[in-house]
């Protein structure tokens, strides 16, 4: 196991210990469970993002895709019942496939392709909701998702299963191995007879699918499909994945790492919030953590990444 994957769990322990000591009630069981169920939206987005990052790309459209998927799932659940919720991930998959086509088949850089998708999808979400009207969910079973059943609410189980599934897809399937191979050496992919464009389509479709799932979960939490929700989440998701130890340079990726990154973000947000510090400071703290994560990775990688000119010897 790469040492960079330990950074986020260690940081979580340190942060949790610090907040636990400083803030009464932080370490209470209820609060810990609360944090765990609040992090799933971000964790799902980060898990999806891991696939895009593994190919040396990234997807900045996931926030907008999640919003559109939430709206679509709310609408479908209102007309079809609980089965309709499945439309969320399907919409996400379609948007991800579009990204994959733009990046893989047409060869557009990920920033531009997913930026266009971000703007376009946001437009579509506004269009289908009459300029941003919220779509309230009229499903009786909705509240059960967050309360009913066992120790963990059903929504948490689904999200947990999805994250585990993402981990298995990345590490145990051909699709996942191809995605990792593409990221570690894009030139080698055509040499062994694999289709680069197809692999990219897979990666971004997976990313979109998880964004759709996150959007559905977000909609269930809010009780309404909000077409303008999710702005800024794409960057938080990338941040969580990077903090968790998946580098932007591709080839290495860890879904549990990304989930740990999301949990760290959530611990920081909740901890700073409950300790009475402005929640905005938490955002700055996350920014510091991102750059620190990059610097730590740089330090672990050694300095061969940036070959410096050799020092001239003194005569």
């Amino acid at each position: 196991m790469s040492p960079r994957l330990l950074v986020a769990p260690l940081a979580i322990l340190v942060a949790a210990a610090a907040f636990g000591a400083a803030v009464p009630g932080f370490a209470a069981g209820g609060n810990l469970l609360n944090m765990a169920s609040q992090m799933w939206v971000l964790a799902l987005l980060a898990a999806g993002q891991t696939f895009a990052l593994a190919t040396r790309g990234f997807d900045i459209s996931v926030g907008a895709v999640a919003a559109l998927a939430g709206v679509a799932a709310a609408w479908a659940a209102n007309t079809l019942g609980a089965v309709g919720l499945a439309l969320g991930p399907v919409v996400g998959f379609a948007c991800g496939m579009l990204n994959g086509l733009l990046i893989g088949t047409l060869g557009i850089t990920p920033v531009i392709a997913t930026l266009a998708t971000l703007i376009g999808v946001r437009g579509i979400a506004l269009l289908v909701t009459d300029d941003g009207q919220a779509v309230p969910l009229e499903l009786d079973a909705a509240s059960w998702v967050f309360s009913g059943g066992t120790a963990l609410p059903p929504a948490d189980w689904v999200a947990l299963a999805a994250v585990v599934g993402a981990h298995l897809v990345l590490t145990r399937t051909m699709v996942g191995r191809r995605i990792l191979m593409l990221g570690s050496n894009p030139d080698a992919v055509p040499l062994v007879g694999l289709d680069e464009a197809r692999t990219l389509r897979h990666a971004y479709a997976l990313c979109g699918c998880f964004a759709g799932l996150a959007g559905t979960l977000m909609m269930l939490r809010a009780g309404t499909g909000l077409p303008i929700e999710g702005s800024g989440m794409e960057l938080q998701a990338i941040a969580a994945a990077v903090i968790g130890g998946t580098p932007l340079t591709g080839g290495m990726a860890s879904v549990p790492g990304s989930a740990a990154g999301a949990l760290l973000v959530q611990v920081l947000l909740t901890g700073l919030n409950t300790s009475g510090i402005s929640p905005f400071v938490a955002q700055s703290a996350i920014g510091v953590v991102i750059i620190a994560a990059g610097l730590v990775a740089h330090g672990m990688h050694g300095f061969h990444l940036s070959p410096r000119r050799p020092r001239r010897r003194q005569p």
Binding site: L235, A239, S284, I291
Partner: peptide, 24 residues
């Protein structure tokens, strides 16, 4: 330039720091 970090990562961190500072 000094640490050879990806520009995306650095500017993303700067984005969060600056917007958090501005809002607080």
């Amino acid at each position: 330039s000094r640490f050879d970090l990806p520009p995306f990562l650095v500017t993303l961190g700067a984005l969060m720091i600056a917007s958090g500072l501005a809002a607080s």
